[in-house]
Amino acid sequence: MNRLNHVDYIIHKLSALATEIEQRGKLNLLDLHRHSEDFYAHFFNELFGWRLQNLNTIKPNAEAIDLIDHTSKIVIQVSATATKAKVESALTKDLSEYNGYAFKFISISKDAGDLRDKSLANPHRLTFDPKTDIHDLTSILRYISGLGADNQRRIVAFLKKELGVEVDPVKLESNLSAMITILAKEDWSSDDAAFETIPFDIDNKIEFNDLNHARDIIEEYSLHYPRIARIYADYDREGNNKSLSVLNAIKRFYVAHKARLSNDALFDKVTECVSERVQESANFVPIPEEELDLCINILVVDAFTRCKIFKNPVGYAHAAS
């Protein structure tokens, strides 16, 4: 993903969560609200470096306050409602035990922009500025848009872990087979070197190639190695030799760019090239972006584990047993 795609992905996932809250809230408000509290505690910790905890796990049914960070002295209310009455209702509760803490309000489904210009009662005089301490989807995305690519990538990784959808194995294998067929159509026969059938020591190879953000991708998608091996074996038994064709296709992209790129940038470029080749094919049937990214990452990581791309560690010439 490039920087623009990072923002698009974040917008998509947070908007989908807000829509789910809006649509399902009336049917399952309590469970969904608790899930949202936990999610936003982890999300804001990732985004701002806070140490929020869900107060309900420490003090069940705590009034007005849902999340708390004792280190930074922050208390937060998470709400599916964004009205002046809702904010003031929280601020007027007995919050004397939080004297010296900053109060923040998170609207998890409604736009709260009009609240930032209102005068809000704050009888316990918690530190609270509506312009900066009321958060909603719009303000969160505005903040994320101003982050650098590395930080946006970190947020994307978090969202994929927290909000990623369950993988349908049948659909995944169908998508993978389609992409393998597309990549195998190219004539890569000039590069007919054999490939490993057993993964090398992945951690060793990641360290040797100084891969940082790619580490998470490799560790996550290397779990699909048996799935890819099975698909390749099925094709190869039919005499199609698609495994060699696809692996050599990915290797060609690596070779084409390794002179000017290295490390994470090279890994990203290879992934981008594979994705572009698949999508440019006349045989490509469009699928949701998340499904496409999943399949492309699986194929590239598989090529990495089979040592078709990136260097093997010095003195480490044999596959792990």
Score class of each variant (00 low, 15 high):
M1C: 11
N2K: 07
L4Y: 11
V7D: 03
H12S: 13
L17K: 14
T19H: 09
E20M: 12
R24I: 07
G25P: 13
L27A: 05
L29N: 08
L32Q: 06
D38W: 06
D38R: 13
F44G: 00
E46S: 12
L47M: 15
W50M: 01
Q53G: 01
N56Y: 06
I58C: 08
I58W: 05
T71R: 09
T71W: 00
K73C: 02
I76W: 02
S79W: 10
S79D: 09
A82F: 00
K84N: 07
S89P: 04
A90M: 02
A90V: 01
L91T: 09
T92F: 04
L95F: 07
Y101M: 06
A102V: 02
A102D: 08
F105A: 06
S109Q: 15
D117M: 09
A121G: 08
T127V: 14
K131C: 03
T132D: 11
H135G: 00
H135E: 11
D136S: 04
D136L: 04
S139Y: 03
R142P: 05
R142A: 15
S145E: 13
G146S: 04
G146N: 12
Q152C: 02
Q152I: 00
V156Q: 08
V165Y: 09
V165T: 13
D168G: 03
D168M: 12
V170W: 05
K171F: 01
L172P: 09
S177G: 15
S177T: 15
M179L: 05
K185Q: 12
W188I: 11
S189M: 07
S190L: 14
S190C: 14
A194K: 09
F195V: 08
F195A: 02
T197K: 11
T197S: 12
D203F: 08
D203I: 03
L211R: 00
N212Y: 13
H213N: 11
E220P: 00
L223G: 07
P226Q: 02
R230N: 13
A233W: 08
D234M: 13
D236K: 12
E238C: 01
N241W: 03
S243W: 01
A249S: 15
R252H: 11
A256T: 12
K258F: 08
A259R: 12
L261C: 11
L261M: 09
A265F: 08
L266I: 05
E272Q: 10
V274N: 09
S275D: 12
E276K: 14
Q279T: 15
A282L: 14
A282P: 02
P288I: 07
P288L: 07
E290S: 13
E291Y: 10
L292R: 13
D293K: 11
I298Q: 03
V300I: 04
A303D: 03
F304P: 02
F304N: 01
R306L: 05
C307W: 10
I309T: 06
F310Y: 08
K311G: 06
P313E: 10
V314Q: 03
Y316W: 02
H318V: 10
A319T: 15
A319Q: 14
S321M: 15
S321T: 14
S321Q: 14
